[in-house]
């Protein structure tokens, strides 16, 4: 039966964004979906630049980036992964390189973004904890894969361990892995220490 007395204020000049914001329940810190899509585009552009340089493949990467923004459900991320693979086939591995680290990280990130595109709403917001959980899963896979890749490249190319450890690539990868591991360990501990 009757619940609430009413009469709303006139909403003549309110925008659709204001209405959506009014309706959104209290979900804590959240990010808009467009920002996540923009993040995906930035990753694609960054990986294109790192892997292809300024070349024809880079132009393809730019086209792919635009296509990702326009055709949200199309499997463009995985096509882009194949493009990276094709680019890597043209290079010769001489030792640990930052391009390889970026390619591995980029491939994984694009796959996760592609999976995410299937369930992300066209418009709306995503709670921070959802993204944090996905980031944690990404780190759980990425950290060991990067370390294993480094070890494998050292083995394959016959680079001495001393050279590999002294290389800036190893420094960057090891630093990122360390940050990831610290985050993986500390975040659950800090969360568990909270009163609620």
């Amino acid at each position: 039966m009757s619940i609430i007395a009413l009469r709303g204020v006139t909403a003549k000049n309110r925008t659709a964004r204001e209405r959506r914001a009014e309706l959104l329940p209290e979900i804590g810190v959240s990010l808009p979906v467009w920002l996540i899509r923009a993040g995906m585009a930035v990753v694609m552009l960054g990986v294109s630049l790192a892997e292809f340089g300024v070349s024809t493949l880079f132009a393809l990467g730019v086209v792919g980036t635009i296509a990702v923004l326009v055709f949200r459900r199309a499997p463009i991320a995985w096509m882009f992964v194949l493009l990276i693979a094709a680019s890597i086939l043209q290079t010769t591995l001489t030792g640990p390189s930052w391009q390889l680290a970026v390619a591995i990280a980029g491939t994984h990130t694009l796959h996760e973004f592609g999976v995410m595109s299937a369930w992300l709403p066209e418009r709306g917001r995503v709670q921070r904890s959802v993204l944090a959980r996905l980031l944690r899963s990404w780190l759980v896979i990425q950290v060991p894969v990067q370390l294993a890749a480094l070890a494998l490249v050292v083995l394959i190319t016959g680079t001495s361990i001393a050279t590999a450890l002294a290389s800036p690539v190893f420094g960057v990868i090891a630093g990122l892995c360390l940050v990831g591991l610290v985050a993986l360990v500390l975040v659950p501990i800090l969360r568990g220490a909270r009163p609620n």
């Binding site: 709303g8 309706l23 329940p25 804590g28 066209e122 917001r125 904890s129």
Partner: peptide, 25 residues
């Protein structure tokens, strides 16, 4: 008429609290 979309964790979805205005009786 108004719709809002969002993705939250399953724990948050157990308690969604909000408010909005009603215009028509």
């Amino acid at each position: 008429t108004w719709s809002s979309r969002f993705v939250v964790s399953a724990a948050t979805a157990r308690n969604l609290v909000g408010s909005f205005r009603i215009i028509h009786s």
